[in-house]
Amino acid sequence: MLKIILRVLPLLYMIVIFILSSMPADAVVELPRWDSLIKESLHLVEFGILYILLFLAALTIKEVSPRLNLILILISSLYGLSDEVHQYFVPYRSATVIDLIKDVIGVLVASWIVFGAYQRKRFHKLGNLLYHIGNLK
Rank of each mutant, 00 (worst) to 15 (best):
Q119P: 03
F89C: 11
P91L: 10
T96L: 12
V90I: 15
H86L: 05
S111H: 14
W112V: 10
K125D: 07
F123M: 05
Y118T: 03
W112R: 07
D103V: 03
E84C: 04
T96F: 08
D103W: 04
L100M: 14
L126Y: 07
H86R: 14
L100V: 11
V107F: 12
A95R: 03
T96E: 14
T96C: 11
G106F: 00
Y88H: 08
D83W: 02
S82L: 14
K125M: 10
F89P: 08
L100N: 03
K102V: 03
L100P: 05
S94M: 07
R93E: 08
H124Y: 15
F115D: 11
L126C: 09
R120D: 07
D99E: 09
T96D: 09
V114C: 13
I113F: 14
F123A: 13
W112K: 06
G106K: 02
L108P: 12
I101F: 02
K102F: 13
R120A: 09
Q119M: 13
R120W: 06
V85L: 15
S111Y: 13
P91N: 05
Y118I: 04
K125C: 00
H124A: 11
S111M: 11
D99C: 05
K121L: 14
D103K: 12
L100I: 05
I98P: 00
L126S: 02
S82T: 15
